[in-house]
Design a protein around this nucleic acid. Structure first.
Length: 473
DNA sequence: ATGTTC
């Protein structure tokens, strides 16, 4: 991205000034000069397009890990006011609806766990269905799937996957309101009937990590984290169902958008108050519940696998964040509280200290936020910051720096795996091409993303996690 | 991300 097009407002905040004759809302970009310089110009074009959509509240924004996506950039945040003609966009949520990360803290430490890590890697690889189209042992009939879409992780706990203590630490406490299973196509449901409790592919993973560094002792203590502790993180979403909803509604919303005079098919959207808009929102909420249930089942499978390698192991849910959603929230703009539909695409909600929606245990320090790193580099746990000006949003990952095609042309999966093994990181995957696409060097530097996220006032770093075992799709 | 062509 050419930085001469931008105006630097603060050390970690930039604006994209209007060109003569251009009509759109403000665009704000969070990040350092090097991070922004490494982004594709497409990011700027895309967030500029978002700023021209009807009913936008405040500015359209990008997070420090932004890269270009379908319609909206990944790492994009945009809030719309239904009362002012605001819109809902499928491309503003993302195709993998409610993709997110479940973090589990363990009672194991690296020193004791090390001798069993190879066995754990093999057990997890057998226990966790992963890869494109991969199905699990759970097969649901249509009525059962509708219950999943209605009740999310609560459904999973009722079936014996995990426990009620998990629910307290899931965003929305395990279930969003407003899901309408009838708005989800039969094809989308059919694709999901065998895919509950599966990881998927691409950047999805299950990682066994060690807490290598604590940045904030108070928050770490509230989150139950200490140096040397083993953590397990599960990154996945709503699988075939979410993807099919994205496909179905892209077509419907594109028609609605053409009536609004928006020519760009990728910006497919409809007013929140329109029939099409309401219909998509009902389907999207159903997909959010599907993803929450999916991560709950995977948590259960992970506990069983972990107990085989370490009979005394206990895994508690630290938190479960979603980073592809649109959620209705109240935010203050110019001193006035407004009810907004906040699109976060590749962006994590990051409520600050004192927010009423947070579980009591974390309320004083802020919401746990996860910046998932690339395979082999590491991840950060952060806490939502007071005074976040980005509709309580934060970065979600390292963010790609290179396309999948380029990465798979440059690296060999097998070589990467042996190189990472030398660094003490065990990779298990059925797809060598997938591993090559996920090469650590195809991503931005997660340390720089986390540092910029903190310096920009979006979230505070709490702990750095180093991967030890990584199960890839 | 994805029954890898939205």
């Amino acid at each position: 991205m050419d930085l001469t097009q931008l105006r630097q407002l603060q050390p970690y905040l930039w604006s994209f000034p209007l060109r003569p004759g251009e009509k759109r809302a403000e665009v704000l970009l969070y990040g350092t000069a090097p991070l922004l310089a490494s982004m594709d110009d497409k990011v700027l074009e895309q967030i500029g397009n978002v700023a021209s959509l009807p009913g936008l509240a405040g500015a359209a924004m990008t997070m420090p890990d932004a890269h270009w996506g379908y319609g909206f950039p990944i790492g994009g945040v945009a809030a719309f006011d239904a009362e002012q003609g605001g819109v809902i966009s499928a491309g503003g949520v993302g195709f993998d609806i409610s993709c997110g990360i479940r973090c589990l803290r363990s009672n194991l430490d690296l020193h004791d766990a090390t001798p069993g890590l190879t066995a754990l890697a093999d057990i997890l690889f057998r226990a966790i269905p992963a890869g494109v189209g991969e199905e699990g042992d759970i097969k649901l009939n249509p009525a059962q799937l509708d219950q999943v879409l209605q009740d999310g992780a609560h459904w999973a706990v009722r079936q014996g996957y995990g426990n009620t203590a998990d629910l307290e630490y899931i965003e929305e406490r395990g279930r969003v309101a407003g899901a309408i299973p009838d708005n989800v196509s039969e094809l989308a449901k059919k694709r999901q009937r065998g895919e509950m409790g599966t990881l998927g592919s691409g950047n999805h993973y299950l990682e066994v990590q060690v807490v290598e560094r604590i940045h904030d002792e108070d928050a770490a203590s509230a989150f139950g984290l200490h140096e040397g502790q083993i953590i397990i993180s599960i990154h996945c979403g709503s699988r075939g169902l979410g993807h099919q909803i994205g496909t179905d509604y892209l077509i419907m919303l594109a028609k609605a958008a053409s009536r609004l005079g928006l020519p760009n098919r990728e910006l497919a959207c409809a007013p929140i108050k329109s029939p099409e808009g309401r219909q998509y929102i009902g389907a999207m909420n159903a997909a959010i519940n599907c993803a929450l249930a999916n991560r709950q089942i995977l948590t259960h499978l992970t506990r069983i696998a972990c107990a085989k390698a370490y009979p005394h192991a206990e895994l508690e849910t630290l938190f479960d964040v979603s980073h592809n959603t649109c959620k209705v929230e109240t935010h203050e703009i110019n001193g006035k509280d407004r009810l907004l539909h906040v699109h976060r695409k590749g962006a994590t909600r990051a409520f600050g200290p004192g927010h009423a929606m947070l579980p009591e245990r974390y309320r004083a320090v802020g919401q746990p936020v996860v910046i998932g790193g690339s395979m082999g580099t590491g991840s950060y746990i952060l806490a939502g910051a007071s005074g976040n000006q980005a509709f309580a949003s934060s970065s979600h990952g390292a963010g790609r720096a290179m396309s999948r095609n380029k990465a798979s042309a440059r690296w060999q999966g097998r070589e990467l795996i042996s190189k990472l093994a030398q660094q003490g990181i065990l990779i298990r995957s059925r797809s060598m091409r997938g591993v090559a696409e996920e090469a650590p060097s195809a991503y931005k530097d997660v340390d720089l993303v986390a540092e910029a996220t903190e310096q920009a006032g979006l979230a505070r770093r709490v702990a750095f996690l180093r991967p030890k075992v990584c199960i890839k799709g």
